[in-house]
């Protein structure tokens, strides 16, 4: 399976988790995710996702003055986004648990 397909499923949760740590603008978010191992992440994936999260009400944005040029758009998590993040955490824990179990069984059979 391609890594990009695996990433697709968890990226939304990771974006919510990163934004929950404090307001960020687009480039900061991409850099933070890349530093955490999403090396191949590009704006082409992130911007539509951010637009979707904003439309769904999971994140909200505010235009703020920037010291190095025009105003920038900063994203913050909403209460709906926090709920979605908690739901993701639960789902991920369960999924990881099930996956670990299957892989452990495979390893013990080898």
């Amino acid at each position: 399976m391609k890594q990009s397909q695996l990433i697709k499923g968890v990226l939304e949760g990771c974006v919510l988790a990163t934004i929950s740590q404090g307001e960020v603008y687009g480039y900061q978010l991409i850099q933070a995710l890349r530093q955490h191992g999403f090396d191949s992440l590009v704006g082409g994936t992130l911007y539509p996702l951010l637009a979707k999260l904003e439309k769904n009400g999971a994140v909200t944005s505010v235009i703020k003055p920037s010291p190095d040029g025009p105003n920038r758009k900063y994203y913050t998590l909403t209460s709906a986004g926090l709920t979605a993040l908690h739901a993701f955490e639960q789902q991920w824990t369960q999924l990881k648990h099930h996956t670990d179990q299957i892989l452990a069984e495979v390893q013990s059979n080898d």
């Binding site: 603008y25 704006g43 920037s66």
Partner: peptide, 10 residues
């Protein structure tokens, strides 16, 4: 505004 944000990030 979306285009400006993308341009600033670029």
């Amino acid at each position: 505004q979306q285009l400006l944000n993308m341009l600033l990030d670029l």
